[in-house]
Design a binder for these strands. Structure first.
Lengths: 113, 113
DNA sequence: ATTTCTAGTTACTTTCAGGTTACTACTATT
DNA sequence: AATAGTAGTAACCTGAAAGTAACTAGAAAT
C-alpha cells in the first residue's frame, strides 16, 4: 500500500481534504440533524467571521454536503442543513468528539496527580 | 452549547488541532499497530520530505501519540510506533478511511450514469 | 578514495487558508 | 431621517504550515 502517490487514491487524504479545515468539522457537527440559519451558526461559533462562515458554507454546498434553503422573506432568511452525504460524516464527527472528550479527561487526570 | 469561545473546550476543535494537519492522519494510519522505520514511512508517503516527516514525528512524539525507539547501530535505525493514546485514534482513522472509500465509490457511480 | 546506507538538519522560500474591516440591499420601525 | 435586522460582499492582509535543495555523521563495502 502506497499512499499519496496520487492523493486522490488515499481515502484518508480524500476525507481530510474535505473535513480537515479549521471550521468545516465544527459546522458539520453543529448542524447535526438540525436546520440552522446563518446567524445561528454565527452565534454558535462566535469566533468565525461572516466572510469565513459564508465561504465555508459555499464550499460545503459545492461539495453537496449541505443544502442551502433561501426563504423569500424580509429581512432575509436562509437555512442550512446537512444532505444525506453530509450526515454520513456524522459518525466521524462523533468519534472525533468522543476522542476529544476522553483525551481532555485523561489530561486533567494527569495534571491532578 | 457554544463552541469555540474557548477552543480548548470544543472537543472537535481539540481533536482536529491534533490530527487536522496534512500529514499526521496519514502517519497515524500508516503506523496502525506496526513499528516502522523512518525510511519506510518515507517510502509509504513518497510526497513527504525528510524535513516535514521529521517535524511531524517530533510533534506526534511531543503529544505522546507515538514512541521513538533508537537502536545503537550503524547505519542508524529508528523505529516509530503508536502509543496507547495514539492507537486510540485508530477508530477515527478507520471511520475516515471508510468514508473516503465509500464517497469515492459514490462519485464514480455518479460519473458513470 | 569514493560510494552507500540511514536518519536526519539547515537555511531559505512559498503559498493560501483564514482573518480584518468596512460596506451593501431591502424593509420596517421609531 | 436614522436605526435595526439579516445575510451576506469587497478589498486587502498575514502567519504558520509546508516545501525545496543541499548538507551531515560514521562506518562499511567497492
Amino acid at each position: 500500500m502506497r499512499f499519496i502517490d496520487n492523493p486522490l487514491q488515499c481515502p484518508v487524504t480524500r476525507t481530510m481534504s474535505i473535513i480537515g479545515g479549521k471550521w468545516k468539522p465544527i459546522i458539520i457537527n453543529c448542524l447535526g440533524d438540525k436546520s440552522l440559519r446563518f446567524g445561528k451558526l454565527n452565534q454558535l461559533m462566535p469566533a468565525i467571521s461572516n466572510k469565513v462562515l459564508s465561504n465555508e458554507l459555499k464550499e460545503l454546498e459545492a461539495l453537496t454536503l449541505i443544502e442551502r434553503r433561501e426563504f423569500q422573506e424580509l429581512p432575509p432568511r436562509v437555512e442550512y442543513k446537512l444532505t444525506a452525504a453530509g450526515q454520513s460524516l456524522l459518525p466521524i464527527m462523533h468519534e472525533v468528539a468522543k476522542w476529544g472528550n476522553s483525551h481532555l479527561a485523561k489530561q486533567l487526570e494527569t495534571q491532578l496527580q
